[in-house]
Nucleic acid binder design. Sequence first.
RNA 1: GUGGUCAUAGCUCAGUUGGUUAGAGCGUCGGAUUGUGGUUCCGAAGGUCGCGGGUUCGAGCCCCGUUUUCCACCCCA
Length: 455
Amino acid sequence: MQKPSIPKGTRDFTPLEMANRNYIFDTIKEVFRLYGFQQIETPAMENLSTLMGKYGEEGDKLLFKILNSGDFLNQVPEGELSTLSSLQLTGKISEKGLRYDLTVPFARFVVQNRDKISFPFKRYQIQPVWRADRPQKGRYREFYQCDVDVVGSDSLLNELELIQIVDEVYRRLNIRVVLKLNNRKILSGIAEMIGEAEKITDITVAIDKLDKIGLEKVNEEIASKGISKEAIALLQPILLLSGTNAEKLEQLKSVLAGSEIGLKGIEEISTIIGLCETMKIDTPIELDLTLARGLNYYTGAIFEVKALDVQIGSITGGGRYDNLTGVFGMEGVSGVGISFGADRIYDVLNQLELYPETSAEQTRLLFVSFGWKELNYCLAWAAQLRKLGINTEVYPEPAKMKKQMSYADGKKIPFVAIVGETEMIAGKVMLKDMKSGQQQLVSREELIATLGNAE
RNA sequence: GUGGUCAUAGCUCAGUUGGUUAGAGCGUCGGAUUGUGGUUCCGAAGGUCGCGGGUUCGAGCCCCGUUUUCCACCCCA
């Protein structure tokens, strides 16, 4: 006999865990719909040509690739099996991969279905994604993302709407969060100002580490990328920005005075923060220049949400991408979106023990009986209760009472209807309240009334 | 990809300097109680000690390899 196991970084979910997870999904969905977003789904697997090159070199490595079916070696030229590099070989034996996120498949979806879509297109999508990462705290190889995106509108009101959604979702889930905000254009402006426009990626990656490794190490890292002393000196006031959002923006404005794109970024972020103030968003919003976000397709606003009371990576992130559909041949469509990490939210809720009593999915009544005749009698009663929307179970065999009662107890079923010959003759059932232990002989109407009232 | 760490019953874990037959709690099943659960009492089932090799008279324990767990880095939800 083999020991059962599941691949690393994946998980099973028990009924209790599913009830808790559904609470998250339902909350998020409800809020999405409140803003007029509509659900779509895309396949678990995409063609590798759709996925490759969209997430940078690292991302390509983290893609799960699917081996071609059939004789997958027949595309490999004779005798080249040992001479090809792994990368060249995967190109020959695999043409599909599991999706890495929901944004790129969505971009593909938009381009492919543009005839059925009217813009601006607001969609949400809740599906698992897969990454061949090393699993660790808050990191899985299979996890759910809950994406909301708007494409076909470059209005900053879309950014506002996403922030409102973040605000509402975390209010409902009772999680205290901070929303960090940045703008890729500001980062570009900074790179431009110090004359290192091409090194923007290196600079943002280094800046991102500021609170982890400190100013000195960040400067070292930037220097190691071949950036001049003068440029690093120019960077310092930016790394040392402080004060309120408004103060930071003022300081930035003078530093970036010479950069058109930088000023544009500042203007955008000011507008967004202004809108949030008007709409009285509760969630604290913090301008954070160290927020770079690895994905290279962002072009404008960048968001990230962190839980205040739990040490875990970001639980929501996103931003604006101006031309994601461009690679699929549809130019000039700007989009902005965010992604809620359901699994991390689940971990946060678990750690804070914030789950509400989830009774909606529970069985309310179990029929316990002594023989097949009684079981038949119960079936009719159960059918009627279910018609009335009462979650009802019939224990499927006339097992010992103790066994049937333990089943009800283990499943925390609040009411049990016991049926023996006496009850059948009387046309009633013995209804037992499992909490109080009290029981009485009741008619069908009385049973329905009791279960109805206890809702 | 790099570094560390863990692995013993279904679950959580004990297991002495390497020494006879590897233990406990919980859970499961049976009984006390043949029409009553959650409490109590009694009993039973359940183990290739992750896997492979090595050292030894002898390995759950020591060594090597491998896989897995968890964690950190990279990166990210």
